[in-house]
Computed example of a mutant assay.
Amino acid sequence: MTDRAPLQRLLEQGIQALGLTLPDGAVERLLDYQALLARWNATYNLTAVRDPQEMITRHLLDSLAILPYVQGQTLADLGTGPGLPGIVLAIAAPGRDILLVDSNGKKVRFLREAIRSLKLEGVRAVQSRVEEVQGQFDCVTARAFATLEDMLGWGGHLLAPDGIWLAMKGRQPDDEFGGIPEGFAVRQVADLKVPGLDAERHLVVLGRA
């Protein structure tokens, strides 16, 4: 059993460094999520990150870094994997309807267990290819699962007319901007500082042109 105290300190320090205020109980639920992910990961190999402290930094804090940019009442997280950033955002800022999309059956089974055991209201998981998902969302998140061209080509139909698309990237993807499909435009490129992470992180904010 992992001692949660050091993980909690790491998470709380990171949240403070990001300048975020989370609802009561959110830190405990985020740690519950990390523990569940670590437990399932031992069997189902859901993420290459195995060290609990690394999970806090590379998964939880990395996902929380985009929280100030999230808007609207509905959110779709495409290629969510084990729920990143979707489940983290659902815990940190509850009250919106969130759809978690992944084509991998093992990951979707984990997502459904996480939604159930963490009692996440308004969150559902679907096993599907992105291009087959229906609906329109105020906010669409995608964490480095494809190029901007492919992301928008497969999932652009999901973005509401005045919605925003949050594409999480490592280095700034200058070579991808030329491939953005017609009808979409870059609104902002934010340089994210993830506490404890010695690697580049950028958020590309897009909208309909």
Score class of each variant (00 low, 15 high):
H59M: 11
G95M: 13
F110V: 12
R96I: 08
G86C: 07
L60C: 12
N104V: 14
D97V: 06
L75Q: 08
A65E: 00
P68F: 07
S103Y: 00
Q53P: 06
T47P: 05
I66T: 11
L78Q: 00
R109S: 15
L78H: 06
K106C: 15
L60I: 15
L84H: 00
I98R: 12
F110T: 11
P94H: 12
D62R: 06
L100M: 04
G81F: 07
Q71N: 05
V88N: 01
L64E: 04
A76N: 07
V101E: 08
H59T: 10
L60E: 10
T74Y: 02
H59Q: 09
V108T: 11
I66S: 02
L111E: 01
I56P: 04
L67P: 00
P94G: 10
L89E: 14
Q53H: 10
G72P: 12
I56M: 05
P94S: 13
G79V: 02
D51Q: 12
P82D: 00
D77C: 04
A93E: 15
L99W: 04
P85A: 13
V101I: 14
L99H: 02
Q73L: 14
R50P: 05
G105T: 14
T80D: 09
G105N: 12
P94I: 10
V49M: 13
Y69T: 01
A92D: 09
L64T: 05
P85T: 14
R58I: 05
K107D: 10
V101G: 11
L89Q: 06
A93D: 15
G86I: 04
V70F: 03
Y69A: 14
P85R: 09
V88H: 02
L78D: 06
G81T: 03
V49R: 07
L84M: 15
A76Q: 02
P52W: 01
L64Q: 02
K107F: 08
A92S: 15
G95R: 08
K106F: 14
G79M: 00
L61D: 09
L60R: 13
L75Y: 03
T57V: 15
L99I: 03
V108N: 01
R50T: 14
I91W: 00
Y69P: 01
P68T: 02
E54M: 00
E54G: 13
M55Q: 13
L61G: 11
K107M: 13
L100A: 05
L67E: 00
V108P: 12
A48W: 01
D77R: 03
K107Q: 10
T80C: 03
R109I: 08
E54A: 15
L67K: 04
P68A: 06
L100R: 07
V108R: 01
V101M: 07
A48G: 13
L111P: 11
L84P: 02
L100H: 06
L84F: 13
L99Q: 05
